[in-house]
């Protein structure tokens, strides 16, 4: 078991990728707080996964404070924080309203900032007890190269990448490692929404044809699953990754290793 004795908090912990992370963390012996807006997150039904549900709107400072108070009372420390809460708006900047832009940054960038800010004292507590405290943000391969019609999302993920490096610089000396996972196409409700969206070119098209076409563009000929992401998050959370910090870990089935795949 890779995470025995560790206390972890996962934001978006009841959503697509978050649930897979929570399930794997529990399997690896961690005590896990699954923080989300509702017990079901973005998926239907409560997850009876052995985690402790924490109601958390990552955009609200008071919620972040309250969540950490709960963690302090229950565990007195936090070894692992995973900032997995995120939203995606499928629009170009001209179609994006100011409200949508602000909402994107509020959840993806400010949410990462607020949760991390109030988790740091508890993570220092874990580090002072000899643990390799690990903070894992969710960037995206979209923070490096653009998908069409996802302007605000791409920008928020670029912000998370820069914040990740900055936090790694600032808090490395305190024994806290900071990394970002940058997923490519992962089979989640967010991806299905992208498939159906106007900007993706998938609107009105045959979903299965579109999905197969997406698989075919990947060198591994498949898009990822939440479990694939959870596998790397688990490693980064574990003490095996004790020298890993300040990095942006792309996990995309090789998608971004190639140039555009022209139909020749």
């Amino acid at each position: 078991m890779m995470l025995t004795g560790k206390t972890a908090l996962v934001t978006g912990g009841r959503g697509g990728i978050g649930r897979a992370i929570v399930a794997r963390f529990i399997k690896e012996g961690a005590s896990v707080f699954a923080a989300d807006l509702t017990p079901g997150g973005s998926l239907s039904g409560d997850a009876d996964d052995g985690s402790t549900f924490l109601k958390l709107d990552v955009t609200l400072e008071q919620d972040a404070r309250d969540a950490m108070k709960t963690v302090r009372a229950a565990a007195g420390k936090l070894d692992v924080l995973v900032n997995a809460a995120g939203i995606e708006i499928e629009k170009t900047i001209e179609e994006t309203t100011l409200e949508e832009w602000n909402r994107s940054f509020a959840v993806n960038a400010t949410g990462t900032f607020l949760t991390s800010k109030y988790a740091l004292p508890l993570m220092r507590e874990a580090a002072s007890r000899g643990s390799s405290a690990s903070l894992i943000n969710f960037g995206s391969y979209d923070g490096f190269i653009a998908d069409p019609g996802l302007a605000a999302y791409c920008a928020t993920k670029g912000a998370v990448h820069a914040l990740t490096r900055a936090m790694a610089c600032d808090h490395g000396p305190e024994g806290i490692r900071v990394n970002a996972i940058c997923p490519g196409y992962i089979d989640t409700p967010m991806l299905q929404s992208f498939f159906n969206g106007e900007g993706s070119g998938g609107a009105g098209g045959n979903l299965e044809t579109l999905q197969q076409a997406v698989r075919d563009v990947h060198p591994l000929r498949t898009y990822g699953t939440p479990t694939d992401i959870a596998n790397l998050v688990t490693w980064l959370a574990s003490d095996e990754a004790r020298y890993a910090s300040g990095q942006l870990w792309v996990l995309d089935g090789g998608l971004s290793a190639q140039v555009q795949q022209m139909k020749l």
Partner: peptide, 13 residues
């Protein structure tokens, strides 16, 4: 601008 965009472009499927 080619490599600024993802190699996956569903609009071209």
């Amino acid at each position: 601008g080619m490599t600024a965009a993802s190699p996956l472009n569903p609009g071209l499927f």
